[in-house]
Amino acid sequence: MAKETRSFAVIGLGAFGSAVASELARFGNQVIGVDLDERRVAQMASVLSSAMILDTTDDMALKEAGIDQYDVALIAIGRDIQASILTTMNLRMLGIGTIWVKASNRTHHRILSKLGADRVILPEQEMGRHIAQMLNNPVVQDYVSLGNGFSVVNIVIPGRLTGRDMASLGIGKTYDLRLLGLMRGTEFRACDAPDLVLQAEDKLILLGKRPELRRFGDAL
């Protein structure tokens, strides 16, 4: 069965917005990019399904451009907080199903949340926390926060553990963690085989609370 694609409107084609729009398009989705800056629109015209110069604080202009027909909108307007807020209000009134918005600060975040944005993003803070996690524990290559203190992390097996079996790591016993699987190169392996032997550079995919994940990573 073919993967179902969705349509996305990305409003604001600065560094953040253009990166998200490009990736969404690379995944095969229909993506329209919108900005007031003619140069930014021109740069993205060949990458996206369509790109246009548009004042998104004008609700009629949004409707005439057909933005209300898109499944998801990402508002990635940079420093113009007023434009970000008005655009969020306009898209909500137009009935866009899902609206994500980039916030400039916590006050902006609170306002956008009150306006009914489905998710408000503070990219610098989120990336800062992400990098801090990896700097704090070098064996952690990547992680995703799931809320309520739970995260999924990608932990690299150090070379000194080569040849050990999975049970020797104490996952689920010594450590209150759940093992979701293992990546060996580009190959995913389930970890239910009792005779699975670890190799250097294997990457464990673990689910658990941050303190327990940290304790496990420190032990490695």
Rank of each mutant, 00 (worst) to 15 (best):
M134K: 14
S22R: 05
M1A: 10
L161D: 02
A9C: 10
L198M: 11
A132W: 13
S46V: 04
N154G: 09
M183Y: 15
S168P: 09
V10M: 00
G170S: 13
Q43L: 14
P123C: 02
D118S: 12
P138M: 05
Q82F: 10
L122T: 11
S145V: 08
L180C: 02
R129I: 10
F188E: 06
F216G: 00
V20D: 00
Y175I: 05
D165L: 09
R210P: 08
D118V: 12
M166N: 08
S84M: 08
A25T: 04
K114F: 13
R79P: 08
Y70M: 10
H108T: 02
K114L: 13
G28Y: 13
I11H: 03
G97S: 13
R39Q: 11
L112T: 03
R110F: 07
D58G: 05
F188P: 04
V20K: 01
T162G: 07
K209M: 06
L146N: 06
S168K: 13
S168Y: 12
A45P: 05
R160N: 10
N137R: 11
I11K: 02
I205T: 06
M134F: 09
Q30P: 04
A9F: 04
E212M: 06
L196H: 10
T107I: 11
G185T: 07
E23M: 11
V153A: 00
N154H: 15
L204C: 01
A76C: 14
S18P: 07
V152R: 02
F188D: 04
A25R: 03
G17P: 02
S145I: 06
R39G: 02
V101R: 01
I131A: 06
I53T: 15
L112I: 09
V156R: 15
D68K: 09
L54C: 04
R160E: 09
P138S: 06
D195P: 06
P123T: 03
V20C: 01
R110D: 08
A219R: 14
N105H: 13
E212D: 07
E4S: 08
S168Q: 15
M166F: 10
Q30I: 04
L115W: 13
I32Q: 00
Q133T: 15
D35S: 03
A19C: 12
A15V: 14
A193E: 15
G163D: 13
A190Q: 15
Q30S: 06
G147D: 06
N29P: 05
K102L: 03
D35C: 01
D202T: 01
Q30H: 09
A219F: 14
I157W: 06
Q141K: 13
L161G: 01
Q133N: 15
V34G: 00
E187P: 03
E4P: 07
T162R: 12
V101M: 03
E38N: 12
E64R: 15
H109W: 13
S50G: 10
R106M: 14
I77H: 05
A117S: 04
L169P: 05
T56S: 04
R119K: 14
Q82K: 14
D55R: 14
S46F: 05
V20S: 00
